[in-house]
Amino acid sequence: MTATETAEAPAPTPLSAEQLFDAVGPAYETAFENLDTQHKSIRWLLDQLPSSGAKIVDIGCGTGKPVCYLLAEKGHDVLGIDISGAMIDAARERVTKAKFEKLDIRDFNPPSESFDAVTAYFSLIAGVSQDEIRATLKRVFGFLKPGGFLVWSTVPLDADNLNLSWMGRPTVVSSLGPEDALAAVKDAGFEIVEEMRSQYLPKGAVEAGICGEGDIWEEPHLFVYAKKPTA
């Protein structure tokens, strides 16, 4: 190497989904606590369910708030699963009326038609491929009872195993563009009841100390409310 040459810094090693959310930790709750579209979707789901006793699983539950907490407070039987041990530890401390399990959705194999509702908020993105997203939606259809509900939210971009920095941390993500995401829900067998598109800037991530100002950007969001047909 000559005096005028400089060595390029090696690209940072991407974090797995588990490492990513262990690193972000419970402060993730603060970063997204003002996500009005999420609260609206929870209210919608509660309106569809009986007053209590429904069996629900939240995929990628994080700290358990707000989803598991609000559903369990209404008397529903709620299970939260997450690949991050840090998130599960926080959830068990913060939400005492729900059950939590450290588990990758790809290893979750409940009995067929055993849940009344499934929620998955931004959890089918890190560490999965587009094919795995589609396959997971089909599996979710299988363990929902006829007439059961799915609430799914994602960042609707056409990306398959894309290396990027999220909240200042390198990782690998996949997602489906808006029309492909809706098509995947329909292809899984669901009837789409409503879709909602919005933009969100997670300013709380900086306030929570997760990352710096330059590490956040305005995200497109897609929320899908869907139902498994009864026949």
Rank of each mutant, 00 (worst) to 15 (best):
Y121W: 11
Y121F: 15
F122C: 10
F122G: 08
F122P: 05
F122Q: 13
F122E: 15
F122L: 14
S123T: 13
L124R: 07
I125H: 14
A126V: 14
A126N: 14
A126T: 12
A126P: 12
G127L: 08
G127Y: 00
G127P: 06
V128Y: 05
V128K: 06
S129R: 05
S129L: 10
S129K: 12
Q130W: 07
Q130I: 11
D131A: 15
E132Q: 15
E132S: 02
E132K: 02
I133C: 12
R134K: 14
R134Q: 09
A135W: 01
A135T: 10
T136R: 03
T136S: 15
L137K: 05
L137N: 09
L137T: 13
K138F: 05
K138Y: 00
K138H: 09
R139N: 14
R139H: 14
V140W: 06
F141N: 05
F141Q: 07
G142T: 05
G142I: 01
F143V: 10
L144V: 02
L144N: 07
K145M: 00
P146N: 04
P146Q: 06
P146M: 04
P146Y: 02
G147Y: 02
G147K: 03
G147H: 04
G148N: 01
G148H: 00
G148S: 04
G148Y: 01
F149T: 05
F149V: 03
F149Y: 13
V151T: 02
V151E: 04
V151K: 04
W152I: 03
W152K: 05
W152A: 04
W152M: 01
W152E: 07
W152Y: 12
S153R: 01
S153M: 02
S153T: 15
T154S: 09
T154W: 01
T154P: 03
V155T: 12
V155D: 11
V155C: 13
V155G: 10
V155R: 09
P156M: 02
P156I: 02
P156Y: 02
L157H: 13
L157Y: 14
D158F: 11
D158C: 01
D158Q: 08
A159I: 15
A159L: 15
D160R: 02
D160A: 06
N161H: 13
N161K: 15
L162Q: 13
L162C: 08
L162I: 08
L162T: 10
N163Y: 15
N163A: 10
L164H: 09
S165Y: 12
S165G: 10
S165K: 12
S165P: 04
W166R: 05
M167G: 08
M167N: 05
G168H: 01
G168I: 01
